[in-house]
Simulated scan of single mutants.
Amino acid sequence: MALQGNVGETGKIRMPKINRRRSPRRALELAIRVFGTDFQGKDFVEDSTTLEVSPHGAKIRLTRQLIPEQEIRVLCQDNNREGLFRVVRQVGEPVGEFSFWGVECLNPSENIWEGALPRPGPKPVPKPGPQLDRAPGRPVDRTPSQSLDPGLGSKAKTPVQFMLRCSQCGMRELVDVDETQIQTMRKLKGLVRGCPACGATVLWKGVAVKGPRSV
């Protein structure tokens, strides 16, 4: 059966657009290692992450510039499964040193993301337990392996909250940020993340929050 399209003013047949994506993607950050050749013909190996995955492809970020239709090899470091992928296109605008790429697995029956776990977030800081009084006459153990204040060593790992603003649509959101993400924010002047409102993966910048006025 022949495909039918609309006839335009010039007499040419306009064929209907076909959605080439075979399966829906979901936002999932997985650790990957990419093997390939950049647009200058130089071989590279780069550790990075996915932003979205589907059984047949993914959206990844890289510091290297690629060329559509080229082939790359991707290793999912969470389950040690790898596959050969085709670069479909560049997605959106680069943010800082990162560019974003849509890739498609060349083996339709191979899902290298199956069984992989997302990257863990910041671990909760354990609360110090009650200190027991030492018995009379027992010396205090002050070995270097023990800390007099159990909370001092974990304060730096406590997640903090930042009010961030999407540079695409202006949506604001209060986000928990760990120490690694804070270092990224200092480098990029913001945090790259997906927006639940407009769906774009862009740079979110910090917004100053004014406190209540004193009476």
Rank of each mutant, 00 (worst) to 15 (best):
V177S: 07
I72P: 00
R61Y: 05
L62S: 09
T201F: 05
P126D: 06
R14K: 10
L148T: 10
A135C: 08
P16G: 01
T201I: 14
S214N: 12
P136H: 05
R172H: 02
L62Y: 13
K59M: 12
R20Y: 09
T184R: 12
R25D: 02
V95S: 06
L62C: 13
G129F: 05
E93H: 02
P130Y: 04
W101P: 07
M185G: 01
V202I: 05
G190D: 12
D47C: 01
V91Y: 06
L51V: 00
G121P: 01
K205F: 01
R25Q: 04
G36I: 10
I182E: 08
L188D: 09
C105E: 07
L75V: 14
P136A: 01
L30E: 03
T63V: 03
R25G: 02
V215I: 14
F85V: 06
R73L: 14
L28C: 11
R138T: 09
L164C: 07
V160L: 12
V95D: 08
M1Y: 07
I32L: 08
I67W: 05
E9G: 15
V74H: 05
I32E: 08
V177G: 03
G211F: 06
R64V: 05
T201Y: 05
G199V: 01
L152A: 13
E114I: 00
R119S: 10
Q77S: 08
P120R: 12
V140T: 09
V192L: 05
R213I: 07
G102A: 13
N107W: 14
R86H: 13
G8M: 11
G36A: 11
F35E: 15
R20F: 05
A2N: 13
D141A: 02
D178R: 03
E46A: 09
I182R: 15
Q40D: 03
F39S: 14
N6V: 15
L148I: 06
E110S: 08
A58M: 00
L3E: 11
P128L: 07
E69S: 09
G96N: 03
R20N: 06
K189R: 10
C198E: 03
F100I: 14
H56S: 12
E71R: 07
F85W: 05
P126L: 08
R134T: 10
L66Q: 00
E97R: 14
G211M: 01
M171L: 14
Q70L: 03
C76K: 00
G36T: 06
G92Y: 02
C166P: 00
A31V: 04
E93W: 06
W113A: 03
P136F: 01
